[in-house]
């Protein structure tokens, strides 16, 4: 039976369920226990599972993420919460040098059933050090998988699937999504964790996006429909691996590609998406692919400048209209 949940509640349910089913699942991070998690994702779990399975940590991101790696080596299934993605920069050694490489370096002896969850993105005036997106860095690491749920249902499914996986998986959660509502059907059969979803069907162009920007793209597509442009919106859901087949199948139909990302434009996820699809679908494309992305600047504190530094619905609408051959003032 489907019910309406907030994004954080969906994550909370998923974690709770996996912890109750499997005693090797435990979670740790700053203020995940007594406090209940900065975004409430671990609410109630400390009381239910106790301090060994819901561990409040010191501010030692490198240390406790590495601890997660060590625990995973011995068959535990740790879910590390890094309070926000900005602090994951201190844990990159554990993530990149250890979690991603140990399975390979050991000749496959060691699986790495580790999940590292982290909220990120541009939220509300949190300033440059607290408004980061790191997909560009993490995508470039062979051995790491990255999931980017944009809806409560995907958050629920993908967290459960990530915990069940024997690969190291980074879950990028967007800070502005935690309090978004959506239907969650716990009984429904989930699609494969990396499979992209076609959030809206269309014939005139394909908009590829992920995380919060996928939701903005769907809203932009609705506005475009009022202007007689039918955009197909693909929500990638996973940034490594990327479900290229769903993307290229769409381009066969629409022949036009618009990529929308919140991360900075230079060497971002969009660069990879466009490069790869240009190789794959070159003969299907009727126009040069277009990218909308964050400005290549640290996020300004000022509210208006912050808003100007990332894509908005109207930016997507304008770019789509131009790509579809409509003059945007028309």
């Amino acid at each position: 039976m489907a019910e309406t949940l907030l994004y954080w509640q969906a994550l909370n349910r998923a974690l709770d369920l996996e912890m109750s089913r499997d005693e090797s699942v435990f979670t740790l991070g700053e203020d995940v226990g007594l406090y209940g998690g900065s975004y409430r994702v671990t609410e109630g779990l400390y009381a239910k599972y106790g301090e060994w399975r819901v561990r409040d940590t010191p501010i030692s991101e490198g240390g406790f993420t590495g601890l997660g790696v060590g625990a995973a080596l011995t068959g535990m299934r740790p879910v590390v919460e890094i309070m926000t993605i900005n602090f994951a920069l201190l844990a990159l050694d554990a993530i990149i040098n250890m979690a991603a490489k140990i399975p390979f370096m050991s000749g496959g002896q060691f699986p790495m059933p580790l999940v590292v969850r982290m909220p990120g993105g541009v939220a509300k005036q949190l300033a440059a050090q607290h408004s980061q997106r790191l997909e560009h860095t993490l995508m470039n690491v062979p051995g790491l998988r990255i999931v980017v749920p944009s809806t409560p249902q995907d958050a629920y499914w993908q967290l459960r699937q990530s915990i069940a996986s024997d690969d190291p998986i980074i879950m990028l959660e967007h800070e502005l999504l935690y309090f978004e509502k959506g239907e969650v059907n716990p009984a429904a059969e989930p699609p494969p964790v990396h499979q992209a979803s076609v959030r809206r069907e269309g014939t005139d162009l394909t908009i590829i996006s992920y995380s919060r920007m996928a939701n903005l793209s769907v809203q932009a597509a609705e506005k475009l429909a009022e202007k007689n442009i039918e955009a197909e919106v693909i929500d990638l859901r996973s940034l490594n691996p990327i479900d290229w087949d769903t993307c290229s199948a769409s381009l066969k139909k629409t022949h036009r590609l618009l990529v929308v990302e919140e991360d900075c434009r230079f060497a971002g996820a969009g660069a990879e998406i466009i490069a790869n699809l240009s190789e794959r679908s070159f003969f299907d494309l009727d126009a040069a692919p277009v990218r909308i992305a964050g400005l290549d600047m640290p996020t300004p504190f000022n509210r208006e400048l912050e808003a100007a530094s990332i894509p908005k619905i109207n930016d997507i609408v304008d770019a789509a209209r131009q790509l579809a051959g409509q003059n945007k003032t028309g």
């Binding site: 501010i59 050090q129 607290h130 300004p300 504190f301 000022n302 400048l305």
Partner: peptide, 26 residues
């Protein structure tokens, strides 16, 4: 003092040797 770029957590004043507010702990 930082032209609105830094905000509450990132006050800097080179002249007064105020070398910055840092928001990543440590």
């Amino acid at each position: 003092i930082c032209k609105g770029m830094g905000g509450s957590m990132h006050l800097f004043d080179r002249e007064r040797r105020f070398m910055g507010g840092y928001a990543i702990v440590g």
